[in-house]
């Protein structure tokens, strides 16, 4: 067993884990954070996407011990008791999700994109989210939601659409 200590959504968490445990299973099974989903478990679908030290990671491909000492942000770290994060709010209002299983991963990828590039073009959005698959929606309402957030953050009051 290996002891890992990491910062998850602003809290220091510690666990003793077998060396083969992935960050995804650590989050879901040890910490009870079930927002990140186990879709393919081999890095193809993006449903397990979380942000580690500011970068998106397929948490099914990162071993828990590799996350030792690092900052991990999951979908549970976005909303407060009072309100959703603006990206979540936009996804809610646009009806961007259907079954919702891919949603937490998509939202985390969108967060990482907007943190780095607050005003992405449609092409940049598509490119940044290419690693997140969805089987239900056809993606267009997700793109619109991310554009809404970008516009809201950067061009208040809302001007012409990009």
């Amino acid at each position: 067993m290996t002891k890992v200590t990491l910062n998850v959504n602003g809290e220091t968490r510690t666990a003793s884990v077998p060396p083969e445990m992935t960050l995804l299973r650590l989050l879901r099974e040890e910490f009870g954070l079930t927002g990140a989903k186990l879709g393919c478990d081999v890095g193809d679908c993006g449903a397990c996407t979380v942000i580690v030290d500011g970068k998106t990671v397929n948490s099914c491909l990162m071993l828990a011990p590799q996350a030792d000492g690092r900052d991990v942000l999951t979908v549970e770290g976005l909303a407060t008791m009072e309100r959703l994060h603006p990206i979540q709010k936009a996804f809610e209002e646009k009806g961007s999700l259907q079954c919702g299983f891919c949603g937490p991963g998509v939202i985390m990828s969108a967060k990482a994109l907007l943190d780095e590039n607050p005003d992405p073009s449609v092409l940049e959005i598509r490119d940044a989210l290419a690693g997140n698959l969805c089987r239900c929606t056809g993606y267009s309402k997700m793109i619109e939601a991310i554009q809404d957030v970008a516009r809201g953050d950067n061009r208040q009051p809302v001007g012409e659409s990009a």
């Binding site: 079930t34 927002g35 999951t74 979908v75 979540q88 996804f91 999700l97 299983f101 949603g103 937490p104």
Partner: peptide, 21 residues
């Protein structure tokens, strides 16, 4: 209308059998 469970889907708390232990 937006779907009733939209907020639970965007904040990651919506229930799936996948999560059951």
């Amino acid at each position: 209308l937006g779907r009733l469970e939209a907020a639970a889907k965007v904040d990651g708390t919506v229930e799936y059998i996948h999560n059951l232990r």
